[in-house]
Design a protein around this nucleic acid. Structure first.
Lengths: 93, 93
DNA sequence: TAAAGCGGTTTATAATATAAACCAAATTTT
DNA sequence: AAAATTTGGTTTATATTATAAACCGCTTTA
């Protein structure tokens, strides 16, 4: 049985990656809304995805307000695809 | 985003369920081999699946040796199917 | 009959997920 | 214009979970 990448095998991190796979970029507030997570939890999980090299996190401004935007990296894309393949062998798809 | 059943969202428990979905029954030793898990870990996870009502665990004898066999329950089958559906929405399948 | 192996279970520990508490800057209220 | 509230987060403490190590009774083998 294939290994399931532990960085992706987490509900919240997987949800974030799933969203980022379908959009060019997404900001902290949007991800928080879509995933219905607390800010603290999201912050920690974004850090982990970032440390793993699966996403980039950029802090900028829109007017006077801060804005943190996330994008999936090529490495993250690849890891996600591999995770999906591995999971398929468990799910009988 | 759908909830991912935390009882199934665990590599080892998912592997066990995946195996049990495809066979009539499987014993402890077989599951241990297929999943390449330690006996202790497997024992704990089988307990959790059993407590959740997802599998039945039956202790019997073959000759003088004990034999623990597992089967997925109807409830377990349903939970597995639902988990697969929920995951699909994350994986873009 | 002592030692080693088989089939596990119990328990201790390491890792993980999650939320609570906190913080600085901006906005709104009085 | 001070005070209070909201926004957009981070840090830290706690609860949960996964995992392996230590253990146990029974059987087989030396």
């Amino acid at each position: 049985m294939k290994e399931l990448d532990p960085i992706l095998h987490s509900q919240l991190r997987l949800a974030v990656m799933s969203i980022l796979m379908n959009v060019d970029e997404a900001d902290f507030v949007y991800l928080k809304e879509q995933t219905e997570s607390t800010a603290g939890n999201l912050s920690v999980q974004l850090d982990k995805l970032s440390s793993a090299g699966y996403i980039t996190v950029t802090k900028g401004f829109v007017g006077k307000k801060t804005r943190t935007t996330c994008q999936v990296t090529e490495q993250g894309r690849k890891a996600f695809e591999e995770y999906v393949e591995a999971l398929k062998s468990y799910l009988n798809l």
